[in-house]
Amino acid sequence: MLRLVLARTAAAIPTLFAIVTLAFFVMRLAPGGPFDSERGLDPEIMKNVQHAYGLDLPLYKQYGLYLWHLLHGDLGPSLHWRDFSVNDIFKVALPISMQIGAEALAFALLVGVPLGMAAAIRPHGIVLWLARIVTLCGIAVPAFIVAPLLQVGFGLNLRWLPVAGWDDGDWRHQILPVFTLALPQIAVILRLTQAAMRDTLSAPFIRTLRAFGLPSSHIYLHAFRGACLPVLSYLGPAAAGLLTGTVVVETIFSIPGLGRYFVDGALGRDYTIVMGTVVTVAVFIIVFNLLVDLAYGLVDPRVRHD
């Protein structure tokens, strides 16, 4: 297990290096600079500002400096939010995004897995229809359609929940974003669980359990063990999907999370914010995938990391 962790960490270093390099140079190739919006800025002042952020240095020096700072865990100063470093911003924004993401994932699992199992065990009647409708909604109605509809329905018309904003994580503000974020994941998890459960239930070892007169509860429990493997391995992509989702959800619901800073940063050429997000997200995905692999080894005896 330790070896897997070490090997993955070693493998992550070139990956992260490639990501940082790619993001750095692609971003700098972009026409326009971070201070273009401030029209009429005196060329002299502009020069000073550029100098202050080291943007007048040759590109390779900027790159070297960035890497050097990054090695020390410093993501640099934000170019847009003056007086704030990217670290300062992320210190606030990252926990918000992670909170929404984790809640959405938990919600998706809590709904998707039991519903998928139920639909596999009893593939008829209300359960199956419910599963079908939920899947269809998750697939056919993307977050950016769901979110405005929810805002109008629950926020403006019914006035049950706030339309947008975060309010330091007041629970009422979390319901709509988390639901929006979870819906597409529910659909995938439901479908995966259903298919995996159906496959496992028709596996020969389940037939053996039946041939030995073991009760249904025992059989379903054992089938679930096999069926949860595909769901487990989906959690990696799910995390990536949730991160994508936060971009939309945070934009629509005006939540001061990572995704919103990223979009604003990309549009405003806030190099450091964009780079910081890309690096953070990449690290997050790598770590999460490692955790999933470790968990997989615990559940499936055929895959042991020793």
């Binding site: 020969p204 070892f205 053996t208 041939a211 030995f212 054992h222 063990r225 096999g226 559940v299 499936d300």
Partner: peptide, 15 residues
């Protein structure tokens, strides 16, 4: 009681 042809797939791989 029964014995099946393929013992690999007839037994539970997770237990």
């Amino acid at each position: 009681a029964m014995i099946f042809q393929e013992p690999m797939s007839a037994l539970d791989p997770f237990v």
